[in-house]
Design a protein around this nucleic acid. Structure first.
Length: 945
RNA sequence: GGGCGCGUGGCGGAAUGGCAGACGCGCGUGGCUUAGGACCACGUGAGGUAACUCUUGCAGGUUCAAGUCCUGUCGCGCCCACCA
């Protein structure tokens, strides 16, 4: 292909229009109250309308991490989809917000800094510049005046500010929302008796209590520390008790960590999924992650209790989702980290228990939960009492019980739980039946719903009850007897929010020594923001395992002796709220202005929209166009597009922050992203995932150089449905590239083009000038279109409009192709028809469309308005009506003939015509007609005996 | 193991329960060309000279009619995974 002739001079057209859009800030969105310059295309379209009165459309991309590798073909997939929609909505008269920015904190720049000493900021800036150049070359209609960069102090100042809000809030279970920490009630024993002066030790206790309730709190959590690498490792980076890189030993080391109390929001994060328009699978992933389980907590007394005296008879509490199987609990299992373990272990078993604990402690979480692993465990020597049978059951420990879920202990029902069954089989523990499966299946290991059996004592029976009823009855009984309570558990854990890194947001927190010798934390005032990271020469952690920030000894200690927090925030922090900063990106006084937030997030925009209803022009997709995609103002981002890799963490974290900000009154909607679509992965041409090692990586720069941005955009969309995983096809680019070439040749005079080619070859430097002299084809005339031409156009308008409403870009493009294939056959091409076609082409391939639009207008001697703001055409269904229709005739459901009938043919006429259809005769003669199905305008089916 | 999704020509993919295969790629024939891997026109699911027959992973079912709905089954992809 490299030797092939260019289909059209995209290499001149694309930079020309990109430059023009930049120059006039063509895609700038305006906040309420902003004055739009009269010569801006937005003003040309909307006049002097106050921008805040227009209906808004906020369309958001997941902003990229600017890696050193540059853009890959997956990025432009989502970006092209959103840009097409942004341009479409803009043409429909909506006020579109379409921003872009950089999620630029992250490990690669830091690792590069450790190796080379080069400051991560410089690496980051360079990568951002590359990404920006590549993205701009694609002609996306972003409002670059709102660009954000999470590593910019003007940005992370507000990330730190939001952290302070979390820090200074608590979750009030009564109101089910976050509230300022000042509203926190204290337990009676912590209430000061005399208002004048609080004793220091009480103040200290109150502080400890307060700190334990904050949404941002500190805890000691074990992390993996690798001495040789001098760094902390994630669970995934530890294999077989050694570092994945280098195979060095690692140790479990408790470190002070910041946590965010996302678990308080579990129920709201779960329930509010119902209110947003996300795909089922995505919601399901979030539901799984939150992991709600309904069940009961049940207390088991320890038999022959050895700690009775010292510890006031603590029972062991378990969580179960199957309280109906309580009669089948034949043993208990504690997690090896359970707090009562030391107390109950008998002297005879202590050595075995200690050995097992030590072995487990070496394993990573990943290894403990490895697939198809043989069960292990040891007996503690102690027994518990089954509260419903009164029987003595042995207490074991095993690593299949996790300390971090439920109560860290289980009742084992080996008859009806797969894991307990395996364990009991291995260690010869008793297995009894308490559930009867339906249709005589084997009860051993039967875990589904059935009917309770062998489940009665002198006070209660649940025998004969189906599982749900049995659960309800036994739970009520347990509650009445004080043996248990109905409980809900979540898999979701609090968010470990600190990292031992350099290239992240420093915490606006200092540590002080209390009068009583305790060390406590204290938030910096908002006036101290942004808190910048210190200058360092070496970005490694300190030799004694302190985070890199601890190397900045001068920065570390404040004049008053307080010490700064040396952890930094995780990369997720900046991406938790960037969509809010876009709304008011240059506001120095607040993280987002109230009016801007209210308008763009649509929290209070509805009444305004009604005011503007008659004034604004929301063309297309109204009643007449028939599409259901008519404008509906939605609360939050109207459409968010990005990859599935963020289906859980980013989206959950962002929803969490948003809800906190909502509770505190800083934003006006409970959910940030009303509609979300995941783009599918783009695989290599060989159908494998793109990777350097396979050598199948496609570089967008190469495609751009060869085919241009318009063809690249089309190609990305034409490969298949947005949400589907699909292989890249360079042949496919050539297909859409040829289509754009046909569009070009349809508009441009052949003779004039030959001259352009010759001149450009002879004098390439002047080719932009020659481009301006290219003539529009003489076959394009300002004449009235024929009915057939109108029909072709309106069929295209209808199809493209409906497909864009349904995000079906591939079939929309095919409709454009169908139109061009037909228009190629016309001897005379009415200018009005081609103009309308260009408005359809504009969202997909804006550069070519703008160029031809402007040429067409000058050929007609007319002033050419910016195509990007020209109203989307409406289709007229009347023009699509056919005079006669081709109706398939089936006999017994099989196609036998096609008849041509007047469009208005009645049912009776259709029947009669079908019965006479020539090719149907052999299948009708001599047969009795039982029934004739007539679907008006569609088909006739003759049913014969 | 659990959940979600998907199986249609040589390939990517189209089809509100109503003519399966739109559109593109590839391939074939012809035209234009000194020539083309550029462009234009036509053809292109399989079998059959034809009439016709077969065809949406496989097996059933519902229906006048099934790629589409239901049941089972096989295969592929993604997510979660000892969560009690």
């Amino acid at each position: 292909m490299a030797a092939g002739r260019r289909q059209y001079p995209f290499h001149l057209i694309e930079p020309k229009w990109q430059h023009r859009w930049d120059e006039q800030q063509a895609f700038r969105a305006w906040n309420p109250g902003e004055a739009v310059p009269a010569d801006h295309p937005f003003a040309e379209r909307h006049g002097q309308t106050e921008p805040g009165l227009l209906p808004k459309f906020y369309i958001l991309d997941m902003f990229p991490y600017p890696s050193g590798a540059g853009l890959h073909v997956g990025h432009p997939e989502g970006y092209t989809a959103t840009d097409i929609l942004a341009r479409y909505k803009r043409a429909q008269g909506l006020h579109v917000l379409h921003p872009m920015g950089w999620d630029a904190f992250g490990l690669p720049a830091e690792q590069y800094a450790i190796k080379t000493g080069r400051h991560p900021r410089r690496t980051t800036e360079q990568n951002v510049a590359t990404f920006k150049r590549q993205i701009k070359a694609l002609g996306f209609s972003y409002d670059w005046s709102r660009e954000v960069d999470t590593t910019d102090p003007e940005y992370f100042k507000w990330t730190q500010w939001i952290f302070l809000k979390l820090y200074n809030s608590w979750f009030n279970p009564r109101t089910n929302k976050a509230e300022p920490i000042e509203t926190l009630p204290y337990p009676p024993e912590l209430e000061p008796t005399h208002a004048e002066h609080t004793p220091p030790d009480l103040e200290s206790k109150r502080r400890a209590y307060r700190d334990s309730k904050r949404l941002a709190y500190v805890t000691e959590a074990p992390v993996w520390w690798c001495e040789k690498l001098g760094t902390v490792l994630a669970n995934e980076e530890v294999v077989d008790g050694k570092s994945e890189v280098g195979g060095f030993p690692v140790i479990r080391k408790p470190m002070r960590q910041w946590m965010l109390r996302i678990t308080n929001y579990a129920e709201r994060l779960l329930n509010d999924l119902e209110t947003i328009d996300w795909s089922n699978s995505l919601k399901e992933m979030q539901r799984n992650w939150i992991g709600r389980s309904d069940g009961a907590e049940v207390d088991f007394e320890v038999a022959d209790c050895r700690f009775e005296a010292s510890d006031s008879r603590k029972p062991i509490r378990v969580f179960t989702t199957r309280p109906d199987t309580l009669f089948g609990a034949t043993y208990m299992v504690l997690s090896p980290e359970h707090r009562l373990l030391d107390l109950i272990t008998t002297p005879a078993q202590r050595a075995a228990v200690e050995a097992y604990k030590a072995e487990v402690a070496k394993k990573s979480d990943l290894e403990r939960t490895e697939l198809a692993k043989e069960k292990t465990g040891v007996f503690t020597g102690a027994n518990a009492i089954n509260p419903v049978t009164g029987g003595k059951i042995p207490i074991w420990i095993a690593d299949y019980v996790l300390i971090s879920y439920g109560t860290g202990a289980i009742m084992a029902v080996p008859g009806h739980d797969t894991r307990d069954f395996e364990f009991a089989t291995k260690f010869n523990l008793p297995i009894v039946q308490v559930v009867q499966p339906p249709d005589g299946k084997d009860w051993r290991g039967f875990v589904d719903d059935g009917v309770a059996v062998n489940s009665a004592n002198t006070e209660i029976t649940i025998n004969g009850l189906p599982t749900p009823a049995a659960k309800a009855k036994i739970t009520t009984w347990l509650e009445k007897k004080g043996l248990g309570t109905k409980t809900v558990n979540y898999k979701l854990r609090d968010w470990l929010f600190s990292r031992q890194r350099y290239w992240g947001e420093p915490f606006p927190v200092v540590w002080r020594n209390g009068a009583d010798g305790t060390v406590y934390h204290e938030a910096l005032p908002e006036s101290a923001l942004p808190l910048l990271p210190p200058k360092l020469d070496d970005y490694k952690p300190t030799p004694d395992g302190q985070p890199p920030l601890a190397r900045a000894t001068e920065w570390l200690t404040l004049p008053d002796g307080a010490k700064r927090e040396t952890n930094t925030m995780p990369q997720w922090a900046g991406s938790c709220w960037y969509y809010l900063r876009y709304l008011d990106a240059r506001n120095g006084a607040t993280f987002v202005g109230k009016e801007a937030e209210n308008y763009w997030m649509g929290g209070g925009g509805r009444s305004k929209l009604q005011v503007s209803g008659s004034r604004s022009q929301v063309e297309g997709s109204k009643a007449q166009s028939g599409g259901s995609g008519g404008f509906q103002p939605t609360p939050g981002v109207d459409l968010y597009v990005g990859g599935t890799e963020h289906a859980v963490l980013h989206l959950l974290y962002a929803r969490f922050w948003h809800k906190v900000l909502f509770d505190l009154g800083y934003v006006s909607t409970p959910e940030p992203f009303y509609r979300l679509v995941n783009q599918g992965l783009i695989l290599g041409e060989d159908g494998q995932k793109m990777s350097k090692s396979r050598g199948n990586v496609i570089n967008p720069d190469d495609i751009l150089k060869e085919y241009g941005a318009d063809a690249f955009r089309l190609c990305e969309m034409f490969m298949g449905p947005l949400e589907m995983t699909k292989p890249w096809s360079t042949k496919g680019v050539e297909g859409v590239y040829r289509f754009l070439g046909r569009v070009w040749r349809l508009f441009v005079d052949e003779q004039s083009e030959t001259e352009f080619e010759q001149n450009s070859t002879a004098d390439p430097d002047r080719s932009p000038e020659f481009l301006e002299k290219l003539q529009i084809s003489g076959t394009i005339k300002d004449v009235d279109p024929t009915p057939a031409q109108l029909k072709a156009l309106h069929a295209a308008i209808k199809k493209v409009t409906e497909d864009l409403d349904g995000l079906r870009f591939n079939t929309g493009i095919s409709a454009l192709m169908v139109f061009i294939n037909e228009a190629m056959t016309w001897n005379t091409k009415p200018a009005a028809i081609l103009k309308s076609f260009l408005t359809l082409l504009q969202p997909f391939s804006p550069h070519l469309a703008e160029e031809l639009w402007s040429k067409l207008h000058s050929a007609l001697g007319a002033k050419s308005p910016a195509l990007a703001y020209v109203p989307w055409p409406q289709f007229d269904t009347l023009l699509l009506v056919e005079d006669t229709l081709e109706i398939p005739v089936q006999v017994n459901g099989k196609l036998r003939d096609v008849i041509r009938v007047p469009a208005g043919a009645t049912k009776t006429e259709l029947e009669a015509a079908a019965l006479e259809a020539e090719k149907a005769q052999p299948f009708l003669t001599g047969k009795a007609v039982k029934k004739i199905i007539v679907v008006p305008k569609k088909l006739v089916n003759i049913v014969v005996a």
